[in-house]
């Protein structure tokens, strides 16, 4: 059974349909890249998976458990959503680190708030340090976000998302706010996560990266999935005219 099942997701903002009948599934340990031009709905899709937007139709199932069903209003409640959204982690385009906390504090804050037993906190901090170490930031744990480069900030944000052990880690254009020199260090981290079989959904404009790191690719246009398949196949030999047109610019 697939780890993630997304069925017939629809979302409109007022009269504008942003997502039209989006369905796909993702196996555990696989990396999925979502590509497409701006306004194609890929970020909205990611936000729906993380419950920052409520889909108007469709359902989201993780490990056989239905997290969201547009037909079942009970799955809408704030408390229900708060528990369920932890199946997903999200790394934002603009990092969104908490500026008043150090890198380590950013990583462990949410965990500490969930753990009432304070004697467990040193364990959380140890895990936080290990995560920062994996991101190559062990020596930056005491730095505040404004003292870090964009690439370093994004790596802290990745550690922060990993700290809660999500089933699926989502990236919303993780390198779009970075200059080319810093893009590499973030992509390297994501690549190593893929090598460790982290289940990931990556919205990206880095085509070469999507081809090399992702297992599967979805190409979206106008709120629809136009083409999906193995990464290399979709990017190197796209079947649909619209996909070819989009990829020809890269």
């Amino acid at each position: 059974m697939a780890l993630l099942e997304v069925r017939s997701i629809e979302k409109h903002f007022g009269p504008t349909k942003v997502l039209k009948d989006i369905s796909f599934s993702l196996e555990e340990g696989r990396a999925l890249a979502i590509i497409g031009s701006s306004g194609s709905g890929k970020t909205t899709l990611l936000r729906c998976l993380n419950f920052l937007e409520t889909p108007d139709r469709g359902s989201i199932t993780v490990r056989g458990e239905t997290l969201f069903d547009a037909g079942d209003r009970a799955s809408f409640s704030e408390e229900a959503i708060r528990q369920k959204r932890l199946h997903f982690g999200l790394v934002f385009q603009s990092f969104n680190l908490f500026p008043q906390y150090t890198a380590l504090e950013n990583v462990v804050l949410a965990g500490k708030l969930r753990e009432k037993d304070r004697t467990q906190w040193p364990t959380l901090e140890k895990q936080g340090m290990e995560l920062l170490d994996r991101m190559g930031l062990a020596d930056r744990s005491g730095h505040y976000p404004h003292q870090l480069s964009g690439g370093q900030q994004q790596r802290v944000a990745i550690a922060r998302a990993l700290a809660l052990h999500p089933d699926i880690l989502c990236f919303d254009e993780p390198t779009s706010a970075l200059d080319p020199e810093l893009t590499g260090e973030v992509l390297k981290v994501i690549r190593s996560l893929a090598d460790q079989d982290t289940t990931m959904i990556i919205v990206t404009h880095e085509m070469a990266f999507a081809r090399d790191v992702a297992d599967e690719v979805i190409f979206m246009d106008g709120g629809l999935i136009v083409e999906q398949g193995p990464a290399r196949q979709v990017i190197e030999t796209p079947q649909e005219e619209r996909t070819r047109q989009f990829l020809s610019r890269y």
């Binding site: 993380n50 419950f51 920052l52 704030e78 708060r82 528990q83 959204r85 932890l86 997903f88 982690g89 999200l90 934002f92 603009s94 969104n96 680190l97 908490f98 008043q100 804050l109 949410a110 708030l113 969930r114 922060r160 998302a161 809660l164």
Partner: peptide, 25 residues
């Protein structure tokens, strides 16, 4: 920025926690 609240939300924080631990300062 709204992103601060969204970051708190995706980390499973409650609205109250987000206000007192993230937004207030």
């Amino acid at each position: 920025p709204v992103g601060q609240q969204e970051a708190g939300l995706v980390l499973g924080m409650t609205k109250r926690q987000i206000f007192f631990k993230v937004t207030l300062l």
